[in-house]
C-alpha cells in the first residue's frame, strides 16, 4: 500500500517520535518514562516507517541488524555493572558522577543507572523490531 499522505506525514512523525523517545529515556529516572518505554516508542517509529514505505527501507534506515542491536544494548546494560565492581560494591550498585557542579547546583548527573537504561532502550528497540520484521516478512 503506497499512500502519499502517510508517507509525507511519516517523514515528519518519525523524527518527532524518535526525539520523543530520547526525551522519555532521559526523564525516566525520576519521572514516568525509562528505557523500556522509550525503546517501545522508538520501535513504533520504525514500524510506522515500515508501514509507510517498505520493510526493506525500514531495515536500511535502522542500519544495523535488529538482533545485533538488541545484543549490543544488553551488553551495555551489563557493562553498567562494571564501575561498581571496580569500586568494590556488589553488582549493579548505582553510582553517580556529577559534571560541572557549582554552588547550589549539582551539575549534570551521569550515572550507571542511566547507562543501564540506555542499554535497555537499545535492547528493547532491537528485540521488538526483530520480532516485527520476522512476523511481517513473507
Amino acid at each position: 500500500m503506497i499512500s502519499l499522505i502517510l508517507q509525507g506525514a511519516t517523514r515528519l512523525l518519525v523524527a518527532l517520535i524518535l526525539l520523543f523517545s530520547v526525551y522519555m529515556l532521559m526523564r525516566g529516572h525520576n519521572l514516568p518514562g525509562g528505557g523500556f518505554i522509550a525503546g517501545l516508542i522508538a520501535s513504533a517509529a520504525f514500524v510506522l516507517y515500515a508501514l509507510a514505505w517498505s520493510l526493506r527501507e525500514a531495515r536500511e534506515a535502522l542500519r544495523v541488524s535488529p538482533v545485533k542491536l538488541a545484543a549490543i544494548g544488553a551488553l551495555i546494560s551489563l557493562a553498567s555493572a562494571v564501575p561498581g565492581m571496580l569500586k568494590g560494591f556488589p553488582p549493579f550498585t548505582g553510582l553517580w558522577l556529577f559534571i560541572g557542579g557549582g554552588a547550589g547546583d549539582k551539575g549534570i548527573p551521569i550515572s550507571t543507572v542511566l547507562l543501564f537504561d540506555v542499554g535497555i532502550y537499545l535492547a528493547v528497540l532491537g528485540a521488538v523490531l526483530a520480532l516485527f520484521f520476522t512476523i511481517e516478512e513473507d
Binding site: V67, K68, A71, I72, A74, L75, L78
Partner: peptide
C-alpha cells in the same frame, strides 16, 4: 555475557 557475544 557469553550468550550475547555468541549471538553477535
Amino acid at each position: 555475557a557469553t550468550g550475547l557475544l555468541a549471538m553477535a
